[in-house]
Design a protein around this nucleic acid. Structure first.
Lengths: 145, 145
DNA sequence: GAAGATTGATCGATCAATCTTT
DNA sequence: AAAGATTGATCGATCAATCTTC
């Protein structure tokens, strides 16, 4: 029945604040520049990178790690805003990015990249980078078990 | 107008997955053991640690870094469940933990601590710890600017 | 009926507007 | 009016139930 000691509590608080602050900074910058939410951006980049503009909804869900219903609603909202369209293919749906969606993601990407550099990469000293990123990789592996 | 190169993209994806996985693991374990959400747990531990059981709503909001309205609604839900009570003090409110709230947080704390160890601390090699946590501290400082 | 997707119900978060006490 | 808090409206997330196409 152990609890966290002071150092551990401080480290946990630090971790929580760091992870929130990085995400908030990126969402803020991308949103301010383009009006896209984190979810919007995630969907659009997958369409462009994995599917060259279109993907089956199923594949999109898998690559995002989202529930079907969440993606369905997200797509509805994005379709309303003209960022993508839904095309039927039998029982399946193919989601295709529109011109407006491509424009938005093209505008967002450099902002996204710059925000990640500023909020995250720039704080990791070059000398510590290897070690740091390998630790993060270990965390993913263990935490997701 | 730079974008992320492959290594950077991989690192960013890794970071996002690691931070999500750690939080999800902790929320899952605490929720499964006690029925408390991350927000419930955050509120209750502040009451106990900062206020020895009760705090002005204002102070609670500040220490959580939450908007007034969010806290107000969270407190309403928690009061309904008997985890705390609201007491008027002029225009202010004093939030006091109940017996049920104390029991819940007492049950949750060791689970929370164990989850943090497993999902986060155990993945940071002792030899890299100093360096790692000081990098996280730098990230907080820079990202939150 | 199995695979793929959407919908209803409900909960949680946020903004702006409002109410209350001093 | 200022400080403290709540409420209405709306958006987003999740679960279970439902609809559609094969």
């Amino acid at each position: 029945m152990e609890l966290l000691d002071d150092t551990e509590m401080a480290r946990w608080t630090l971790w929580k604040r760091a992870t929130d602050a990085v995400w908030d900074a990126i969402v803020h910058d991308v949103g301010a520049a383009t009006g896209l939410s984190g979810a919007d951006f995630a969907v659009l980049t997958r369409l462009v990178e994995l599917g060259d503009g279109s993907l089956r909804q199923q594949e999109l869900a898998t690559s995002l790690g989202w529930q079907r219903s969440r993606l369905s609603r997200q797509i509805s909202r994005m379709a309303t805003r003209g960022l993508l369209i839904r095309e039927a293919d039998g029982a399946a749906r193919v989601i295709a990015i529109t011109k407006a969606g491509r424009d938005a993601v093209a505008e967002a990407r450099p902002v996204h990249a710059a925000a990640i550099h500023r909020a995250l990469f720039d704080s990791v000293p070059a000398a510590a980078a290897e070690q740091f990123w390998s630790t993060i990789a270990t965390i993913v592996r263990i935490a997701a078990e």
